[in-house]
Write a protein that binds this DNA or RNA. Structure first.
Length: 587
RNA sequence: GCCCUCGUAGCUCAGGGGAUAGAGCACCGGUUUCCUAAACCGGGUGUCGCAGGUUCGAAUCCUGCCGAGGGCGCCA
């Protein structure tokens, strides 16, 4: 259960008895741990509302709380803070409940929803690069959080495979290699081998993209190619399949390295059959209209503080765009997936795009009441110069290169510190990989989603202090104790009321889990989980230093400590899992 | 030009209208016959960009200004 809601309801009752709203009893962890464990601030707000002295109200509430069996001490301080310390017995009692609960006290929802998480956003012709990193690991963590909370989560990377970028690629390839069968209207059959590699595509696409901006003729050819592809030209489709599959192959590998899995692997092209009918219907109903040769939905509303451009469904050359497929994808997610909530984990720069899409979807009547579409935006990951992370040559940094760099750093750490020297080679390299990925994910997820931050490789590869490996190390230490306990026949016992500070503080920390996870979900903010996991690991490390479990002579105490360690491990592993971080058995 | 986001310790960043604004790194010192030292303990730093406002109370909410980044019709 949530200890804070338990305390809030006790305090709320005290306020109710005074004829005041129960919400005033909201209890939070104390900001002054040397004074108390928890605090209630409602008396000050009540004082204002009822024109009474806040301290008097606080005192009346405190008097009522003082009689509660769970409360050890209650004091009024300052302008009207109510400071609460709970009894060690009640800590142990609630701790025992949470420790035995597979959900660690978190109240799983009784009303599961279908939650679609749209994240990662891989594209044809692009290997995953560091720009995809945040979307991938934030999205993955959010998917894990909603799943833990009991919702039905559908993860879809929403592969970008159907827009103008395809026309650009086809046009550029046609120019470079006009002899290919794909461009011969009479070919009929096409090679089974791709004519291009991912490296080719990564070279061709940026070139074509830049060129189209200044070369109008080329841009026109690319637009026409887009339309021809979308209309089903067999040669273009055959080439498109090759480009799609070489891109996908490398991306799937990167996702596998990161431990990220999807439930669907849909792309823009999968809603292709919906595009024409959707646009036609919207024209008929008057939602969409022609403007400057294109078909658009005007989405401006009264009260807007600026002009918001219309959503373009069909370009003047007749091609469908990103916006069209996105709108059709919403329709598909409503009809086929029955989505109640869709989270778009996409960077901040696309805020206007999603504003347009969401408004258009509402205007088009394709989202039922009660369904929420949310753009979960995040800031940029920058290099040490404060600008988006690039190689020294100015190119994008491949995600696989970053992962490799971190894995190597973890490997060096093992070698230099003479760690794990007697482990088999396969295990050593597995540890290096797990630790490297943890450093990467934690280093990102510890930041507030909405901040830009600097990816400092020195910091990411230090593996000390507030890092992923720090958390893994704490978990590994517990695993080691539990292994030894088992081999020595030492058994876990019932949790006793804590007697030493380090023990009590670890318990109180672990009791926060339900509230922290709930808050992370409500705010769609994995950094709360990351921060909390760090706090738990820190508390455990202090406990580990202070209380030597296996040599404890008091057997009941030893059993209780072992249970506490097992609980801390379960919490750490769960929290790290919510961040998408694995824990090795030893490191 | 309009709009959005951000500005907190030397650096990188947390921070939920509440008390004395916190971590990590860096720097200095200490801890290992004991469950993994990737650990633990101690040491000090702030005009919370600036100026107003709301509030019993503001890093947090509002307004203006300064600075940085981003977005603004057929790219995604």
């Amino acid at each position: 259960m949530s200890l804070l809601s338990h305390l809030s309801s006790i305090a709320g009752e005290a306020f109710t008895e005074l004829g005041l709203p129960a919400e005033l009893g909201e209890t939070v962890p104390s900001q002054r741990p040397e004074l108390a464990q928890y605090q209630v601030n409602g008396a000050m707000a009540a004082g204002k509302a009822t024109n009474q002295a806040p301290r008097e109200i606080a005192q009346k509430v405190a008097d009522r709380l003082a009689g509660h069996p769970d409360i050890e001490n209650v004091e009024v301080a300052g302008p009207g803070f109510i400071n609460i310390t709970i009894t060690d017995a009640s800590i142990a009692r609630i701790a025992a409940e949470d420790a035995a609960d597979p959900y660690l006290g978190f109240p799983v929802t009784s009303d599961p929803e279908n939650v679609v998480v749209d994240y990662a956003g891989p594209n044809v012709a692009k290997a995953m690069h560091v720009g995809h990193l945040r979307a991938t690991i934030i999205g993955d963590s959010l998917a894990r959080l909603f799943s833990f909370a009991g919702h039905k989560v559908i993860r879809d990377p929403h592969f970008g495979d159907w827009g103008f970028q395809m026309g650009l690629l086809i046009a550029a390839i046609a120019e470079e290699q006009p002899e290919l069968a794909y461009f011969d209207p009479d070919a009929g059959t096409y090679p089974s081998e791709s004519p291009v590699t991912l490296d080719d595509l990564q070279r061709i696409y940026p070139e074509a993209s830049v060129r189209a901006r200044s070369d109008d003729d080329f841009a026109d050819i690319a637009r026409q190619a887009t339309v021809r592809l979308q209309q089903g030209d067999p040669g273009y489709l055959a080439l498109w399949r090759h480009m799609k599959s070489v891109s996908e192959e490398s991306q799937r590998q990167d996702f596998a390295t990161l431990g990220v899995n999807f439930d669907l692997w849909y792309g823009e092209s999968d809603v292709h059959d919906r595009l024409g009918p959707l646009v036609a219907t919207l024209r008929e109903s008057g939602v969409a209209e022609e403007s400057k040769g294109a078909i658009v939905i005007r989405i401006g509303e009264d009260g807007d503080n600026r002009d918001i451009p219309p959503l373009i469904l069909e370009s003047s050359s007749g091609g469908f765009l990103y916006s069209t497929t996105d709108l059709a994808t919403i329709q598909m997610r409503m009809e086929e997936l029955r989505a109640d909530l869709v989270l778009y984990v996409v960077d901040r720069r696309q805020a206007d795009h999603f504003l347009q899409i969401f408004r258009a979807a509402a205007k088009a009547g394709i989202i039922p009441d009660g369904t929420r579409l949310e753009h979960i935006w995040f800031g940029t990951m920058n290099g040490p110069d404060g600008k988006p992370f690039k190689t020294r040559e100015g190119g994008v940094v491949r995600l696989s290169d970053v992962i490799e760099m971190l894995t190597e750093a973890a490997r060096r750490r093992l070698d230099e510190a003479h760690l794990a020297e007697d482990y088999p080679e396969a295990e050593r390299s597995s540890i290096a990989s797990i630790v490297g990925v943890a450093a990467l994910k934690f280093g990102d997820l510890i930041n507030n989603r909405t901040s830009d931050y600097v990816l400092d490789l020195d910091r990411f590869t230090s593996f000390e202090g507030k890092t992923g490996p720090y958390l893994q190390y704490a978990a590994v230490r517990i695993k080691s104790i539990l292994r030894r306990a088992e081999s020595e026949g030492v058994e876990q016992g019932p949790l006793l009321a804590p007697t030493v500070d380090a023990e009590r503080e670890l318990m109180l920390e672990l009791l926060r889990l339900p509230d922290v996870v709930g808050r992370a979900i409500a705010l769609r903010a994995p950094n709360h989980v990351a921060e909390f996991a760090y706090d738990v690991a820190g508390r455990f490390n202090r406990f580990y230093d202070t209380c030597h479990i296996l040599s404890e002579p008091d057997l009941a105490r030893r059993g209780s400590w072992l249970t506490l360690a097992a609980w801390a491990l379960a919490a750490l592993e769960r929290l790290l899992d919510l961040l998408g971080i694995e824990v090795p058995d030893r490191m």
